[in-house]
Design a protein around this nucleic acid. Structure first.
Lengths: 229, 229
DNA sequence: CGGTTATTTCACGATAGTGTCACGCAAGGT
DNA sequence: ACCTTGCGTGACACTATCGTGAAATAACCG
């Protein structure tokens, strides 16, 4: 599936310019004209990346950023903000609110695209299909369902995202810190050991009535998801 | 352990300013005055983050960036570059060469610190193909697995790192002190003979059911990993 | 609001991994 | 042969790390 970008920009010509160029690059693009619309579209469109103008009518950019970050759905969606030249204060506040990057207006389109590429590269693995399957485990993002050997498995939201992330890179070992960053988000601080507890619950739910445990503990390194075999 | 930052900057006042402020933030800081020194320090200091001035004597910033990216040690170390105002071309080239971010000079210290915080949150996920193989032994950093002739070999963390280090330079002999420094780290003190014990454990695990021992003892010199042949 | 569900932290026990030592054998020199 | 030095390894006390139940919070949902 092609990456989906949400552009939040109130100046129509700029919005169109962005849409045109991004689509040429192969992205799917939605445009929101103000903060309210942005939150609405973000909620239903589940974009993979948000380009966010800092000066917006109705709801300020920083507020949009904060709300996107506090909503579970969009907690890990990269946000690139557009700021006016010279407003360092805004940039710092933005980055600390959870934006991943910024571009100063006026910008070169080539630079913006390079930035987006850089940001996308960091999360590329997340842009997989709707369904992930490995071994006898199936995870469906659409219906938010997980099955083990055909049986439905009930997971809490965090366990779901944890499994989702692990299954996206089968066999790969992630440290607790990496998992916290990927699953919980980089802006919240929780103890690394919390991961253990969720891994435990995930295991209990996933392995009910099964003997093989697809989640591997690598001592002093982290956890990984491994299909049987 | 506190994060270690390598600052590569040829203008002494700026370098000192950076060092001062970064240390105040709790980072450990090394300073390199040119590209050559940068590569040297990066190699031996294993920094967690590199702040790289783009205009350097001897070796240009972009070249330093490229070499850091191609070296195994520093492949996943985030790089933030410092560029002069208005040089969009450089920035784009830099980002595409593998830099993770840039700051335009002159910059606000607070902005730079905010950027570094943002970059530090994301430890670059290691690339897929970081495997080492020699003879019938395979070591995969990503999945944290070691195989001998196709069979899984279980190693403790220290044995894993030890083998990893030895396999990186097949045939080369390392003294116990060198191995302690590379595998255990320079800040801990352990007896040199401890290496022997770990070599022994590594051998036992690796050679189970095999007749050839890929680890060679060089009397009064050290150990090396040698593929069969 | 009240009740439910999810999340986080803590503490404790279980277990895997680590560093030292000591003893015996091996290698090398004279 | 004999002595010296270096290496391999079993044993053991000590740590670090992991799994998990339970308690305390926080989020959610009518």
């Amino acid at each position: 599936m092609t990456p989906h970008v949400l552009v939040v920009e109130d100046e129509e010509p700029i919005a169109q310019l962005l849409k045109y160029n991004l689509e040429k690059e192969g992205y799917r693009v939605s445009v929101a004209g103000d903060g309210e619309e942005a939150l609405l579209l973000a909620d239903e469109g589940k974009p993979d990346l948000v380009v966010l103008d800092w000066m917006l009518p109705k709801i300020a950019g920083i507020e949009v950023c904060r709300r996107l970050r506090s909503a579970r759905e969009s907690r890990n969606t990269p946000i690139v903000m557009l700021t006016a030249r010279g407003d360092e204060g805004d940039r710092i506040r933005g980055l600390d609110t959870g934006a991943d990057d910024y571009i100063v207006k006026p910008f070169q389109m080539s630079e913006l695209l390079a930035r987006l590429r850089a940001v996308m590269r960091r999360i590329r693995p997340a842009l997989a299909d709707d369904k992930v399957a490995a071994g006898d485990v199936t995870l469906d993002r659409g219906s938010h369902r997980v099955k083990r050997a055909g049986r439905d498995v009930h997971l809490g939201p965090t366990e779901f995202r944890l499994l989702e992330y692990l299954m996206q890179h089968p066999g790969r070992v992630f440290s607790r810190e990496q998992l916290l960053d990927a699953v919980w988000g980089s802006e919240v601080y929780v103890e690394a050991r919390t991961v253990d507890v969720h891994i435990g619950r995930l295991r209990r739910a996933l392995n009910a009535g099964q003997e093989f445990d697809p989640i591997r503990t690598v001592r002093s390194a982290g956890y990984s998801f491994d299909a049987e075999g």
